[in-house]
Design a protein around this nucleic acid. Sequence first.
DNA 1: CTGAAAGCGCTAACAA
DNA 2: TTGTTAGCGCTTTCAG
Lengths: 342, 342
Amino acid sequence: MSPARSGTGAGTRPKRPTMVDVAREAGVALRTVSRVVNNDPTVGEKNLAKVQAAIAALNYRPDERARQLRLGVTGTIGAAVRRIAEVNPELAAIEHTARSSGLTLLAASTDFDEAREREILISMCRQRLDGIIVEPIGESHGYLQPELEAGMPVVSMDRPMSGISADCVMSDNASGIGMAFHHLHQHGHRRIAYIGDSERVFSGRERAGAFRASLRAYGEPLDGLVHTGEITAQRVAAALETALHAAQPATALVTGNMETTIAVLRQLGRDQASRIAIVGFDEVPLADLLQPALTVVAQDTARIGRTAVELLRARMAEPDRAVETVVVPLDLIVRGSGELRA
Amino acid sequence: MSPARSGTGAGTRPKRPTMVDVAREAGVALRTVSRVVNNDPTVGEKNLAKVQAAIAALNYRPDERARQLRLGVTGTIGAAVRRIAEVNPELAAIEHTARSSGLTLLAASTDFDEAREREILISMCRQRLDGIIVEPIGESHGYLQPELEAGMPVVSMDRPMSGISADCVMSDNASGIGMAFHHLHQHGHRRIAYIGDSERVFSGRERAGAFRASLRAYGEPLDGLVHTGEITAQRVAAALETALHAAQPATALVTGNMETTIAVLRQLGRDQASRIAIVGFDEVPLADLLQPALTVVAQDTARIGRTAVELLRARMAEPDRAVETVVVPLDLIVRGSGELRA
DNA sequence: CTGAAAGCGCTAACAA
DNA sequence: TTGTTAGCGCTTTCAG
C-alpha cells in the first residue's frame, strides 16, 4: 500500500516472482507448480491450466541456480581454451557435441596465460560444472589434483596435463611432421628446414623432435635446419636468413603451427613465397586464396573436439574408468606450395 | 565404518566437503568459516589459522552456486554471438572488458539460428545472469519483453533488437559504404558494383541502401550494379557475371561483408582478382597476404565490444536510465586492391 | 570477535 | 492426484 517499497531509487532490480508466488496466484501448492514446470504428467487438467495461467500472468521463469543447487548437477561443462573469438574449429566441435548431448557450454579464454588458466579452472570447479575440457598452457597443474580426487571430470586437449593424470585427446604430431617431410622429400627437396614454436611448449617439443628424427631417417645433416622459439617477426627473419642463405641453402620449409606459417609467409613476402616450397602444420584461414595456395598437414579438429566431449562424458558416467589418451591422425592437404620442385 | 557407503559403484561422485564440514573440522562455527572464506578481517588469529588448516585438509572449495543463490547476483554476463570459435574481435573485446570489470563471461553461439538464439537467451535469463549482450539474429525479440520489465539488462551489438527497446552499439554502416564508394570513385571508377548479404538482414539492408544512395549522389545509374541475397558461390558467380560482363562493365566492386568478400575472391580466382578494384566491408583474415592485398573498410570491433560491456554495466547500475544507441565510425584501410585504377 | 538460526528458490521424499 | 516439509550450501541478521 505504501509507496515506500518501490522508492529505493536507481539500481533496484524488480524482484522476480518465485514458485511460491505462482502457487499463491494459482491457488495450489508449491509442489504442483514444480510438477508443472518439470512436465510431470501427474497433474490434473484443472490445476495444470491454473498454474500455466499464473505462470503467464506473472511472467515466471524458474531460477536455474536454485534448481542446480538442489539437483547437484549443472548440466554445464566448461571449456578453457587458449582463445575463443579466434578461429578455433575444435571449440566449434565441442560446442556442437555438447549441445547435441544436452549440455550447456561455458567457454573461456586462457589467453596463453598460466595464471589466467588457473583462475578459470578454479572458478569452474567452484561453479561445480559437470566437467572441464582444457587446452593446457601451464607447466604444472598439480593444483587440480584435489579436484580430480573430489571427482571433477577433466579432459585435456591438444596437450597432456602436467603433473596430474587426466584423459587426453591430441594429434599425432610426430606422424604429421613425418608426412610433411616425406612429401617435400618426394618432390626432390634435400635441404628442408623447420621453423616452429618454442620447445618449452609440449607440441613445439614433439614437432621439432619429430622433424629431427625425419632428417636423421633420411640421412640428412641437421645443421642450421631446425629453428624453434617464440614466434616473432625478428626470430622468423633470422631463421629464414640462416636457412635460405647458407652454403647449402634450404629449398623447402616445414612450419610448426599456424602462427609460424603466417609469420613466415609475411616475412618471405610475395615474391619469395612462390619460390620456396612450404608445408604448414595446421590449417590456415584462406590458405586456398594464397599464391601459391598453401599445402598443409591439417589436424582433424572436428574429431578432436568431439572426442574431448566424449571422453568427458565417459568419465562423468564412470569416474573410476582407466585414464585414456586418444591420438588423432592428421591429413595432408595438397594445394600447391608443397609441390614446388627443388 | 561399514564399507557399504562407498560401494554404490560407478557413477558415484565423491561428496565434496561443505562449509559445515570445515567448521566441524576446525572446531568453530559455520559463520566463522564463512568469514574466512570471504576475507572478513574480523576473525581472530587462532581461528583463522584453524579454519585455513581445515580448508586445506579437506580440500574445501566454496560452492559458487549456493553463494550466488543467496547473494542474488551471479557476477556473470552472457554473450550470445553468432559464432564463438570464429574470428570475432568484438567477442574478444567483450571478454577483456568483462574480465577487467571483474565479470565472468558466458559465451554461446547462436549459429545464425533464430530458434537457437531464443533458446540461449531464455536459458541465460533462467540462469539469472547479471546481463546479456546479444548480436541479434531473429526478427522478433518480443519474448524478451517480460525479461526487460523484470529488470534483465540487455544490450544488442551490430544490429538493433526488433520489437523491443534495448541499448545498442553498432557501426556506422552508411558512412562506411560511403567511404568505400568514394575511395573507388576517387581512383577513377565510374561503374562500381555492390555485392552483399540479403536485405532481409538489418545490416544488409543498411549497406545496400547506402550504396544505392552513393550511386545516386554521384549521379550514376543503378542498373545491374546492386546485388544482394544469401551468400552462395552460385549467387556470387551470377552477380559477378552480370556486373562484369554488362555492356558497361563494372571496373570496381564493394563487397558487403567478410563472407561476401571471401566468396568473391574465390570466384574471381587468382588472375581476375588483380584486375578489378575491390574494397571490402569488414576486415578479412590475412588480407595483407592476398594479391593484391585487400583494401577494406574496417569496423572498430574493439570499441564495439568494449562499448557493449560499458552500456551493459551502465544499465546494471541504473536500470531506469534512458535507452541509448551508440554508433561507431569505421576506418578505411588502404592495402592495394582498392587503389587499382579504372 | 563469535555463534545460532533464518532463508535464497528449488526438488523430492513422504503423507494424505 | 495433491500438499507438507526438509533440505541443497551458502550469507547474514541479530544476540551473545
